[in-house]
Design a protein around this nucleic acid. Structure first.
Length: 794
DNA sequence: CGTACTAGTCTTTTT
DNA sequence: GACTAGTACG
């Protein structure tokens, strides 16, 4: 039984208002997840609603998982039949069942932006559009924006009349959609708008879902775009028991189509809506909250509300300005180390937030030097790494032969001697016959122009067919291992002998683990569902909270999270708010950036440190940026250190502590470096209302080389560390045989590298790392995985 | 057909 | 400064 006494009055109002449209305006840290989960419990326990009739939609998998967990805790029985999923997962689920009604196969594949770009490129080639004049990026953005707004290719073309560039894009858009259809593939945006199309055109399907979803709840409603709005409108059209939760002040995804009007105009769309505001904050201290309120108060397009707290004012907000971005990073590392040693702070209670992913690198390097354990969230997605994408392309080809992008990706990886000309000829044949690229491969012997190359293609086709026929027998684990072995993928990496080869092999190992655990955790683990799950995961979802590590992430990634100690780095005009925002004529962009700042500040529970640097390197250029205008919007009495004021919007200089900063002691170049020209930013920014100083400097050697850590593999990927801890993984994996047929000192033979001597064997999670010194000096010493290396004892 | 080098490109966030 | 895509050459 859920206990509703833990709720405050406003939360209770939100929970007990079950009928009709309801808008919950929930400020940061106001317990909105608590309100939603209790509302679900209340529906089931007190209103006799069948869990099966409840739909809860979120944006991220993480949010969905969290909600599921908390609902499970509240609702004992039947909670598993509540439909809790992200927008995209919800649509996939619907489409897997009914996609055939809008001309797709139900086993369609999902394209990420990488695959998307490949298709766009091909389409441009076909339509003879010069991608130097009109960049793929621009086209992709335009198509995505069109889909977000539910504009189909035909309508787009009509609207583009008279506009040369837009007409070109319209042509690409139309051809792109045709290609996607014939590839039986959908991109992320398609998932949403194809579902909308399905619900709009098929009354039976619509009625089916409208009847099922008696109660619908949408989280982070301020981030919905037009297509998502329409989806919700359709689904909720029957019973109209729609509850949306959001905070217009935390709308930070305009760039991907989010329409803030959806939440601001909710009462216009649903005139009978009840509105409940949650304004009591349970997260942050008074000072932090005051700062957040002061900043966001400068926005005009917002619903009036003010967060308040019963907590004390707490510590003041710390502000520190340093000379360079390097010192900024160093200070953070030093300060976190200090708090850990002196105040017993857990590393896991601290987070460093920044505007752009590129800022992470410098901070990482300093953390390594100071020995601060950390995790970087985001950056390059695990599944978008080359080696992983290659192997996934094999799996996609096996799963859906119509996926041309996947087939073309791997047809010559590893090398099979099938080059560009052959591929072009096959494509030509496929186009002429109106069949897929893969089907054309199957008929390669009939293609006159191909000639001898057919002898190279045939084994490839046979191989794929063998994989397909063996799949039901050996399952996913067997399949991936067979693919790796048969194609010789790992040997290819070893032969390339790149510096990151080891890491790439480890990544492949992780993919295997992922597939093994997927097979164990799912009742019916099919290849399609595996690929689908992979397509819909972002890296943030795998951040592990139990790890005692400082988290490094972008402000966007931080939404929905909270930390005792928060460092906001790069508080400079030009970085945050970004250069583009400052120079843009569109004022709403600055407001969006300010909301991002509001999100950042409100992540902190008790300790917030704001940092900036007088100069930093951005894309090989040294920039001199003034203090962020957002920082100046915080009342000075809330900040310690030297503070910029409204009256004197000049440059706040901060005199570092008198003591010799310990953190510089190992960096001799600081003393020896040629003094850089330091422009007088105070006068500059006063004179030119904070204009951005983007000074090109060629002066002085760059600190970079001496900073770069020698450690080859400094990045701790949260993803991987989590994977290895997944229950059941070790069970399912071979233990490297337990006892290898060889030991340290033995002579062994490798297929490619010849004979050598085993220098050491290191026991890994699932496999042994074997170091071998090969006789052939060309190969020398190599570290390899026993599972793949297939070493023979001599 | 494959490799090695060069030139152009960077927003900014995510499913 | 770093990465990627495209091109020229072997």
């Amino acid at each position: 039984m859920a206990n509703y006494d833990v709720l405050n009055d406003m939360q209770k109002e939100a929970v007990f208002q079950t009928k009709g449209p309801l808008l919950i305006l929930a400020g940061a840290g106001s317990g909105k997840t608590r309100a939603i989960t209790h509302r679900i419990a209340y529906l089931i326990e007190n209103c006799g609603v069948n869990p099966w009739n409840i739909l809860a939609i979120t944006f991220t998998n993480k949010a969905a998982g969290e909600m599921r967990e908390r609902v499970d805790g509240l609702v004992g029985f039947g909670s598993e039949s509540i439909w809790v999923a992200t927008f995209h997962a919800t649509c996939v689920r619907i489409l897997r069942r009914y996609a055939d009604r809008i001309g797709y196969d139900t086993n369609f594949t999902i394209y990420d932006s990488d695959d998307q770009k490949t298709v766009i490129k091909e389409v441009c080639k076909k339509l003879q559009i010069d991608t130097k004049m009109l960049k793929e990026r621009t086209i992709m953005g335009a198509i995505s924006a069109a889909k977000d707004a539910l504009i189909d290719p035909l309508t787009y073309q009509m609207e583009a009349m008279g506009d040369f560039q837009k007409s070109k894009i319209a042509m690409v858009y139309a051809e792109y959609q045709r290609t996607m259809r014939s590839n039986n593939a959908m991109d992320f945006d398609d998932l949403i708008c194809n579902t909308v199309e399905l619900l709009r055109t098929d009354g039976e399907v619509l009625a089916n879902y409208q009847n099922r979803f008696e109660y619908i709840m949408v989280d982070e409603y301020q981030d919905t775009n037009t297509a998502q709005f329409e989806l919700i409108r359709l689904l909720a059209g029957g019973k109209r028991n729609l509850c949306v939760v959001g905070d217009d002040d935390q709308s930070i995804y305009k760039f991907r189509g989010a329409n803030i009007r959806n939440i601001l105009d909710f009462e216009l769309h649903y005139p009978d809506a009840t509105v409940v505001k949650l304004e009591q904050n349970y997260r942050s201290t008074g000072n932090i909250l005051d700062a957040a309120n002061a900043v966001i108060g400068n926005n005009t397009a917002r619903k009036e509300k003010a967060l308040w707290t019963e907590q004390d004012a707490g510590e003041k907000i710390h502000f520190k300005q340093l000379d360079t971005a390097f010192e900024e990073a160093d200070f953070i590392a030093y300060d976190i180390g200090r708090k850990h040693r002196k105040l017993g702070m857990r590393f896991g209670d601290a987070a460093v937030l920044y505007r752009t992913n590129a800022q992470a690198r410098l901070i990482e390097e300093q953390f390594i030097r100071e020995g601060i354990p950390y995790n970087v969230v985001g950056g390059v997605n695990f599944y978008s790494r080359k080696e992983i994408k290659d192997l996934l392309a094999y799996l996609k080809t096996i799963d859906n032969g119509r996926d041309d992008v996947a087939v073309k990706r791997i047809i010559n990886v590893p090398r099979r001697g099938i080059g560009a000309t052959t591929i072009a000829k096959i494509q030509q044949y496929a186009d002429d016959e109106g069949i897929s690229f893969y089907d054309a491969l199957c008929e390669c012997e009939d293609i006159a122009s191909i000639g001898k190359a057919a002898s190279k293609i045939k084994p490839f086709v046979t191989m794929i067919q063998v994989f397909r026929s063996k799949l039901p027998i050996y399952g996913l684990e067997g399949l991936i291992k067979d693919v790796i072995e048969t194609t010789g993928y790992v040997e290819m990496i070893e032969a390339e002998d790149e510096e990151d080869g080891q890491m790439r092999i480890e990544n492949i190992d992780e993919l295997i683990s992922k597939m093994v655990s997927f097979e164990q955790e799912n009742e019916e683990p099919t290849l399609s569902t595996l690929l689908e799950e992979i397509a819909l995961v972002a890296d943030i979802d795998s951040a592990d909270e139990n790890d005692d590590r400082v988290l490094l992430m972008t402000l966007h990634s931080a939404k929905g999270l909270e930390f005792e100690h928060v460092y906001l780095a790069g508080m400079e005009d030009g970085v945050f708010p970004g250069f583009m925002t400052i120079t843009s004529d569109d004022k709403t962009e600055l407001e969006e950036e300010r909301r991002l700042c509001y999100v950042g500040i409100t992540r902190a529970k008790q300790d917030l440190t704001l940092l900036c640097a007088k100069s930093r390197m951005v894309r090989g250029e040294t920039q001199y940026n003034p203090v962020s205008r957002f920082l100046k919007e915080i009342p000075t009495n809330l900040i310690d250190g030297v503070v910029p004021t409204y009256k004197n919007p000049g440059y706040a200089t901060y005199e570092p502590d008198a003591k010799p900063l310990h953190m510089f002691k190992q960096k001799p170049f600081y003393q020896t470096m040629a003094p850089q020209p330091q422009p007088d930013v105070v006068s500059n920014s006063t004179a030119k209302n904070f204009g951005l100083h983007n000074t090109n400097t060629t002066a002085g050697p760059r600190p970079k080389a001496s900073v770069k850590p020698k450690v080859t593999q400094p990045q701790v990927k949260p993803f991987i560390s989590k994977m290895t801890e997944l229950p059941g993984v070790s069970k399912g994996m071979p233990q490297g045989g337990g006892a290898l047929p060889y030991g340290v000192g033995d002579r062994v033979r490798h297929v490619k590298f010849g004979e050598g001597q085993v220098l050491s064997i290191e026991e890994g999670n699932r496999d042994h790392k074997v170091t071998v010194l090969f006789d052939d000096a060309q190969y020398g010493q190599k570290i390899m995985y026993a599972l793949f290396a297939k070493l023979e004892k001599i």
